[in-house]
Simulated assay, not measured.
Amino acid sequence: MTMPIGTESVRRAGTEFRWPGGVPVAVIFNIAYEGWSAGKAPGIGPMGNVLQPGYFDTNADSWARYGAVRGIQRLSRIARANGVKASVMVSGVLAERHPQTVADLRSDGHEIVAHSYGMDVIPIYLDEAAERANIARTGDLIEKACGLRPTGWISPRATNSLASPRLLAEAGYLWHGDANDDDLPALIELPGGERTGIVALPLTMDVNDLPHSIRYGNAPDALIGQFEAILDRATAADAQPFMLDVTAHTHVFGRPSGAWVYDAMIKLALKRTDIWITTRAEVAAYAREKEAWFA
Rank of each mutant, 00 (worst) to 15 (best):
G67F: 04
N218F: 05
G48M: 09
Y55Q: 14
R12I: 10
L231I: 14
R137H: 05
I198V: 09
E194T: 14
R11W: 01
Y66Q: 08
I154D: 09
I44A: 01
G197D: 00
D178G: 02
K290S: 08
V261E: 03
E194A: 09
I224C: 04
E189H: 03
A281K: 13
R97L: 08
D57T: 05
L190E: 04
M119T: 01
L187G: 04
Y262C: 11
P241M: 04
K144F: 01
I124D: 08
A145W: 06
R288Q: 12
I198D: 00
Q240S: 11
L141C: 08
L268Q: 03
A79I: 02
Y55T: 14
G6K: 07
Y173F: 15
P46G: 07
L210P: 03
D104P: 00
S116P: 10
Y66F: 11
L184I: 11
R12V: 09
A60V: 12
K290Y: 05
V283D: 08
G6F: 02
N208V: 02
Y286T: 06
K85N: 08
E131P: 05
S164C: 09
G139C: 05
V69K: 14
S107K: 14
A200T: 04
I214Y: 10
M205R: 15
S116G: 14
V50A: 10
R166L: 00
A287S: 06
I275E: 02
A284E: 12
V207E: 09
W260S: 15
